[in-house]
Nucleic acid binder design. Structure first.
Lengths: 191, 191
DNA sequence: TAGCACATGTAAGCTGTTACATGATTTA
DNA sequence: TAAATCATGTAACAGCTTACATGTGCTA
């Protein structure tokens, strides 16, 4: 049994928890996993087809429904594939693309003022993510299954930490320190 | 002037700071920016060609050098493009792909023991990144330009925070809490 | 009845990795 | 002299986004 494609991983999980149509999956992904696992229609619909061809999901089109909506569910093979992936011991993918960090990496080619402006933009970005998370939180807390709310807590902690870290760097840059000095003085603690 | 392609952004920066060949750029990227901005030969060499065609860089092949090495430098247009990108006020790209978080998101389909095993693997991953950063640090600290060391400090803080956060979650999971409970009790502080 | 949400799908194009091909130079 | 490193490049393929095409059902 070959590995699940990246998009297949979200799809199987989403179907497992009752998000049964491609449209549904997209809608839920855009409100939840997109912060660490995005998916677009261009990936979702072809992948649903492949998963059905491969026997991991089964699609049913209700003929009474005038909308040509196709409702998917996991087959036994699909359940097994999902659980196999969830419990696999290969190191999980972790990939980051952070343009702000790249700019800071090259910030010896900028003035301190220009660097400060970029740091501010980076902090704003993470604050905005925090705002989105806070807007989602009541729904996550009230949801029937608890794990997503746990992940959201992690996201709040993470982006809160990053925003705080940038705030500290900003203050030190404003006081005239270099980026390296400012970054070196930031000491994180978890309690 | 159209936007710099993702790989063009690292390339211009790297050339600016004296990494003059495709091979060089790849080597340095793999020791530094790859944690937040990766690049492969399949991107680098064609992009060097395009940048030269576009007049942002100039390549020189030393005929006395038996190795067919091509040494690049920034043209005035290239300097301007680099600086324009560095100081642009569009919100910088921030993309994360974290398979561990996706598994936790779906962990209601796992037993507590299986979830714990995944959290341990995630922590191990970040600890391993920390080890790599610590190995790099002396070189970053001794480098001629200071900004990369500042970024490394940020990386140490970030992955240290994440590893600590997972350690806390692990302990609470071991004590029998659910993921949502364990995550909710973790309170981050920066000082 | 207009507009929005529901619903599925595809085509074009960009970005990226992996693996291979080729050959020179340096070092053990 | 063998192996590692330096050095450039390409072909095949995987993955992803954006934009478009098409049509239904609900609601103000």
């Amino acid at each position: 049994m070959s590995e699940l494609s990246p998009t297949a991983r979200v799809i199987l999980g989403m179907i497992k928890f009752g998000n049964a149509t491609g449209y549904d999956i997209k809608r839920v992904v855009d409100k939840s996993t997109r912060f660490f696992w995005a998916a677009s229609y261009g990936q979702i619909y072809p992948e649903l087809q492949r998963l059905e061809d491969g026997g991991l999901i089964r699609g049913e089109a209700d003929p009474a429904d005038a909308r040509r909506r196709k409702t998917y569910s996991l087959t036994d093979a699909g359940e097994a594939a999902l659980h196999g992936w969830l419990t696999a011991d290969e190191p999980p993918t972790y990939e980051l693309r952070d343009e702000g960090l790249l700019k800071l990496f090259f910030s010896d080619a900028m003035t301190p003022e220009e660097t400060l402006a970029q740091v501010r933009a980076m902090r704003a970005r993470h604050e905005s993510v925090l705002d989105q998370f806070r807007a989602i939180e009541p729904f996550a807390a009230a949801a029937s299954r608890p794990a997503p709310h746990g992940v959201l807590q992690g996201g709040l902690a993470l982006h809160g930490f990053i925003a705080d870290w940038y705030r500290g760097v900003e203050e030190r840059l404003e006081a005239g320190e270099t980026l390296a000095e400012a970054a070196g003085h930031q000491i994180p603690v978890t309690r």
